[in-house]
Design a protein around this nucleic acid. Structure first.
Lengths: 331, 331
DNA sequence: ATCACCGATGTAAACGTTTACACGATAACT
DNA sequence: AGTTATCGTGTAAACGTTTACATCGGTGAT
């Protein structure tokens, strides 16, 4: 049977209230009694019952983390970032991924009302009506990790997709490239949309002509990248460089190009976005944008904990994580 | 304020005990009263306070998942598998990854005694004394995901590293390869050790000579694979095929080989282990062993929940997950 | 010397739920 | 008809912790 404050009280010859106060660092207890209690506690190897504590306090020190129904490297870094930060603040992390038996909206409803978590972080690739409605319930603080920070009056953490895509294009232009194609991500993904927008705006700023058939549609998978690039490799007028909206599609381009016996970057250059693990080791190594995934999780957790602690309940904050160009050998 | 059974009781004109019973499906309540309660509950949009429930029941429906301090694709699939299964059984999943501020052992101690989780799953690459001692505390049911199922009298879920490595070698022998090298993983990793053992035993069974300098040491990273293979590419007597203990090292070999202008598999063939995402898309696609990661998480969770429910408390089970050869173009 | 105040500690209520036990009513025996 | 199960429901205690309030002894001001 796990020791309780009652047993400590008996052992230390004080009341349970004093024990509770001593353990929680109330300054109203003498340092003697405090020492007494602490000794008794460590003698019994006491650990506070978190369930009881959360219950009586009417709030929970558990951070919920709601993930969409795909699993990749990206998520495990987010999880790690959140968990590390939460732990450092005395919180725990509960992961709720949606899957065939559970939608994001369901997860939100559950977490909002069963008292299990004191707040949550939710990853939303694209904000839709249902989710927004579910979030409006309020009651439990939350932070959104999203591609887009225009998500209503919510606290959000985003990457600077637009600016980074913009910078990537400017980098390419400075290198002398004039004929640039873009493979975009899914139409219902805000990261993808913003990257495309950054691409387009940078092109028009620098008077780069955008041919319609050089704006290719992809869906962030390797296959879709391969498919997309194959459409233009057959044509006479080829772009000099292809900027894929993520690394997976860029690597798909590698396949298509290399299986035709063409050379990267001599025949055609490639750049990506995300800097996934493999990009560094691809041949040639891929020029891309490094998204600071760990910082995303970290900052989302920090902001959430501010809200849960009541430290900082001011109006919604829009946090944007800087990301950096990683220049390698693919262009 | 979230509705409680008290309010339901008032609304339905019954006692809170009846409400509790009706909601928990006790057969001792009339279907009329049950209906009454259910109506009131849905009218108030009632959700049971999980914290209170767990607290009073003295047990938790939270599954702890303790991960080592690295993050990759593998883990997010495990997390997903565990979460999905847990959810289907009415449990929640809490992730505790160890990192600079928290060791595996600490995690175990915490989860064992603070009542937060009702059981946990722990990933252990290599069982050491400290961890074993921590686990011996008992009190909270747990399941180990490990490379090796010889981990004492514990419930474990493992992949059949040994057999799969064995099969891989037999496959290579059948293809006519006679000169086979192996790059092994870290010496303190049971998966790695068992794969190496499988390799060695299969070689001796099939009378494949094992040259000492063809037994290379790696540490599961791409760099280590590259480093290892470079040691033998300079020699006159080269192996025909290299069996790396994981895909990352196999891909490291790709780099080394291709940067020397050699061709895979014509000049030298490569095989790996794990079947990570990228292996399918590597050029040439990598022959490897597919580890059923999702099943690992799923079965670990199922076994744990059996124990938590008290359904099946019989002696420790050793579950071994089958994995399969994935034959592609690298050999 | 009296009073007010303060600081340290104790007492007891509260949180939402489950559940052992009590209770009354009805059904099923003799 | 009287006894006894049985069934549905209610009463109240219990879980471990926090915390508002009470208590008590001591200190300083008058």
């Amino acid at each position: 049977m796990a020791p309780t404050i009652k047993q400590i009280a008996k052992l230390a010859n004080v009341s349970i209230a004093t024990v509770s106060r001593a353990l929680s660092g109330d300054e109203k207890v003498t340092s003697e009694t405090k020492q007494l209690v602490l000794n008794a506690a460590s003698e019994l190897n006491y650990r506070p019952n978190i369930l009881a504590r959360n219950f009586v306090k009417g709030k929970s020190n558990i951070v919920g983390l709601i993930l969409p129904d795909i699993s990749d490297e990206f998520f495990s870094e987010i999880i790690r970032g959140v968990d590390e930060t939460s732990y450092d603040h005395g919180y725990y992390t509960m992961v709720i991924s949606s899957h065939k038996n559970r939608s994001l909206v369901e997860s939100v409803h559950t977490l909002m009302s069963n008292g299990l978590v004191g707040g949550f972080i939710i990853l939303i690739p694209f904000m839709d009506q249902k989710i927004e409605a579910a979030l409006m319930h309020e009651g439990v603080p939350f932070v959104i990790i999203s591609g887009d920070n225009n998500a209503g009056e919510f606290d959000t953490v985003t990457t600077n997709n637009y600016q980074s895509a913009f910078k990537m294009v400017e980098f390419l232009v400075n290198k002398g490239y004039k004929k640039i194609a873009h493979i975009s991500g899914p139409a219902d993904n805000n990261d993808a949309l913003l990257r495309k927008k950054g691409f387009l705006d940078a092109c028009s700023k620098h008077k780069i002509e955008i041919k319609n058939n050089w704006l290719l549609d992809g869906n962030f998978t390797m296959e879709s990248g391969e498919l997309a690039i194959n459409k233009i490799l057959n044509e006479d007028d080829k772009p000099e460089v292809i900027f894929a909206a993520n690394d997976m599609m860029a690597l798909g381009c590698y396949n298509a190009i290399q299986s035709r016996g063409l050379k990267i970057p001599d025949d055609i250059a490639i750049t990506g976005f995300d800097d996934i693990l493999i990009s560094k080791y691809a041949n040639p190594s891929l020029t891309t944008v490094k998204v600071n995934t760990d910082r995303i999780g970290k900052l989302a957790a920090e902001r959430l904990i501010e809200k849960m602690d009541g430290t900082n309940n001011k109006t919604a904050q829009k946090i944007e994580i800087e990301s950096e160009l990683v220049i390698r050998n693919s262009c």
